[in-house]
Every structure is written in C-alpha cells, then in structure tokens.
Design a binder for these strands. Structure first.
Lengths: 244, 244
DNA sequence: GTCGAGGGCTGATATAGTTTAGGCTGGAAG
DNA sequence: CTTCCAGCCTAAACTATATCAGCCCTCGAC
C-alpha cells in the first residue's frame, strides 16, 4: 500500500530512508470506518491521533439551528488532531464522509516520531499548511461569490490529491454529496446544484457519479482566482516515484 | 506597563516567576506604528516575530476584485507570525487597524524562550487557540446570518480583551471602522451599519466613537449562540492581579 | 422484479444582502 | 471661523441566494 503520509510530507522536503521506514511501520494497523461516522465528537477528549489513509473525512460544527459547517476536508495523508497534546477537549467534531481507512496512533508513538528532526519539521509544516488552508477557506466563504467558491475548492482538492498521488491527470474521485459540498462552502444544496450545472455548461468540469474531471485546469484556476501559495508546496517538477 | 502577553499566556496556566520576568525583558524595545500600516505583506519573508502590545491589527488578504477579507484580529498579547520558522513566504498580509505599539522579536530570542517548558507549552496553546478561533470565524461567516455574525464577534472580543485586562465591565475600546467590520464578517459596510442599529435598537449594545458597551452580556451570547469553548480558557474565577 | 430511500434536479416565490448614491456630522487643518 | 474629509447613516433599486415543494432517477435490499 502506498504511504500517503510520506507522499504528503515529502511535498515539503525529502525524508531520510530511515524515516520513511518508520512512517511505514506506523500505518500498519489500519482499520476500516464506514461513511458518515463520527471519529470524534465535540466535547470529547481524544487520546490518540487519527490519520486518514483512504477516503474523505471532515472537521465540522453543528449550530443549534441545525445548520452544519464543514471546516476542513481530511484526505489521505492528513492528521485529524495533532493538537491532542495541549488542548483537553475537542471544540469540534470529526466525521468520515465516504468510507475510510484510518489509523489510530498513540501519543507515545507520535512523540517517538517527533524525535526525528526531519519528521518533526514536516509535521510542523503540515500543521501550518492546515492553518493556511483554513484561512483560505475563510476568504473563500467570506469574499468570493458562489460559483467561484466551489471552483476554488475543486482546484484546491486537485492539488492536494495530486501531491498524494490520488489524481489521474485532471481527474479525481470526489466521494461527496452536493449537500455536503453546500455545507462546506456556506450555501444551500439547491444552489450548489445549480452552480455545478453552470460550471459544466461553461465547459469547466465534468462531474458524474463522484468522478470529477477538470476540463481546463488553467481556466478553472483563473476563474476562481486560485493562487496555490497557501499550500506551501516545494517547487519540484514531479512526485517522488513511490507516489505514482 | 502591563505585560499583555503574560496576561494572555496565564489564561492557559500560571507561569513561574522567572518566566514572567523573562517575558518582561522581551517587550522592552517596543515601537509605535501608525494606523492602517502594513507590518508585513503577502509574499515577503519575515525574519522577526511581531508581538502586539497596544492597539488592533489584522491578518488579511485582498482579492483581485478589490474585496478584502480580514482573517483575524490581533489584539494586545497576540503574536503575528510564529510560523516564521518553517514557512518561507507569507501567504497573507498583516496590517495595523488602529495605531499600535509592537515589538519585533528575533528568532533567536523566541528559541531562547522556547527552552522554558512552561512558556513553550503556552506558546503552543496560543497557536492552537488561534487556529480554533479561525475555525469559529469560518463557522460565523459560513453558517450564521448577518446579525448574529456581528454579535458573535463582539462576544468573542469581549472575552479575549477581558483576559488581557482591556475591558472595564462589559465595555471595551473597539478602534475599528464599520467598513473594516464589514470586511471581517463578509458583508458590506451598508449592511453592517443597519445591523449595528438593530443591535442598538434591541438594547443589546451601545457603540459610540469606538467605545462598545455590551448592555446584556447573557442575552447577546444567547442571541449569537456564543460558546466560548473554542477559546480554551482555563476555568478560573478571576484574572491574575497584575492584569487588572 | 418491486420497493424505498437517497441523491440529483427543477420551478416558483421569498428574502437577505448588495449597489449606488447622497446627505449628515464632528474633528482636523488652514 | 471656515473648509474639508472620513466615517457614519439612509433610501431605493437590484441581485444573489434561500426556501419550499415536488419530481425523477438509480441502486441496493428484499
């Protein structure tokens, strides 16, 4: 099995052989989790760190009105709750969207990994990129209009999934319902539906049965004003071979 | 001069005498910065860490459309860019809103502080709270309606400023223009104006010449659905005496 | 093969928020 | 004392998005 975590971390910089080996050890004991299942709920105190290996999960909050806001997508290679070590209780929930495979990593194990300087630095980088992504989402929801919001999100996912080797060309699996998309961009399902149609009509994308094709990457990026700087990817021509 | 940084960090937990002393050293060489001035721009590579001692600053991005989104308020005691150590270039700008006094702290100095376990842990905590706040802002803009957005923001600021001793009862200085408020909650100036009037008419707040009074704290919190859990403040009855 | 449910799609109507434009006020500058 | 300007406030027309209600597929369970 391809180690998506390694793929992701190497987008920051290459890791020593020994570190890669260590990271392979860590993802041994994966477990399957069904779709729409809470991994951890608001108010709970997590003990382990969850790492996504396959599928999509999300951070979310639910307001008393019933409105749910999704605050992050967690895709293969992403940690769910590295902050375990400092904060006692979760201020938000984490749930799977599609079916996932997940590893629970103990604090002890994480601390062990953190002793490797290259890994520690890469973990830091990953945490900071998560925060930068969150900022971009705020911009997206606060300042862009509906059509560009979803276009921007689709661009972001293209890059993120590409760095973990989960795209084929300009195409990737998006195992997400329109209602869930709506909850992430702050719109209604109805409206998201109409926007997707417009994007299709404009010849920008194809989306059928959870399979997204970006027909014109440059045009979609231009249209949504996508600037990848916030992902802080190292400028390298290709992926490490083990991620292809 | 009261050390707002210490006040803030002690909201997480008490610091040893020696650490407090060290933090006092650090804020010696403060400098004044005028209102509406960039502290650092998108694309630049910062060398020092900025710490706000007085006044309000913000993180922001400007879209090609001209629309600006404010992504965080930085109030006394807040660090601007602790991520200096890992990420090379800024993916957003930081600017003062009001006139500020700011200290520039060198990397070396920060590393020195980080050797103190209590301080290191408190810095971590502060960074994580910043991220949690960002998440809450995303919820605010994505899921709440205009009137509650503004109300929620005012509640948050009340708590944040209270922990650094900058409130008197339910009252604080909000040195911010309505247009800036609009840029932070993702609305137009016109609309923010109307909303402020409604909040006044409902007897929830008073706002005159940058001076905000929250007339009924409980009602405002209930109205805006404010849950302070994301600020992760320790449950303590009062402030350390030096912050009063 | 039928049934039922979830997801995608559609149209009509309602509303929140934007845009534009203009007037008012109070304080800073001359 | 006047002028000027930024910030605040208001009004009216407009538009993006929400709401509501319902239809139609598809696919898996039975």
């Amino acid at each position: 099995m391809v180690n998506r975590l390694t793929c992701k971390l190497e987008a920051f910089g290459p890791l020593p052989e020994a570190d890669r080996f260590l990271l392979d050890e860590v993802i041994r004991s994966a477990q399957a989790v069904g779709p729409r299942t809470d991994l951890i709920r608001e108010g709970q105190t997590p003990s382990d760190v969850n790492l996504i290996l396959e599928g999509f999960a999300c951070r979310y909050k639910v307001l008393p009105t019933g409105r749910r806001q999704i605050m992050a997508y967690l895709v293969p290679g992403d940690f769910c709750d590295l902050h375990v070590f400092i904060l006692k209780t979760m201020d938000h929930g984490i749930a799977t969207l599609s079916a996932c495979t997940v590893v629970k990593i103990s604090r002890a194990r994480i601390l062990e990994l953190m002793e490797r300087p290259a890994i520690a630095k890469a973990f830091w980088w990953a945490a900071l990129v998560d925060e930068a992504t969150l900022r971009e989402w705020l911009v997206n929801v606060g300042a862009r209009k509906a059509e560009q919001r979803v276009a921007h999100l689709l661009c972001e996912l293209l890059l993120r999934l590409r760095t973990v080797g989960l795209t084929t060309g300009n195409q990737y699996e998006l195992p997400i319902t329109q209602a869930e998309l709506a909850d992430t961009v702050g719109l209604t399902g109805v409206h998201v539906n109409r926007i997707l149609q417009r994007l299709r009509a404009d010849g920008l994308i194809t989306l059928r049965s959870k399979n997204l094709v970006i027909l014109d990457e440059e045009r979609l990026k231009a249209f949504s004003n996508f600037n990848p700087n916030y992902l802080h990817l190292a400028e390298q021509d290709g992926l490490p071979e083990q991620c292809l």
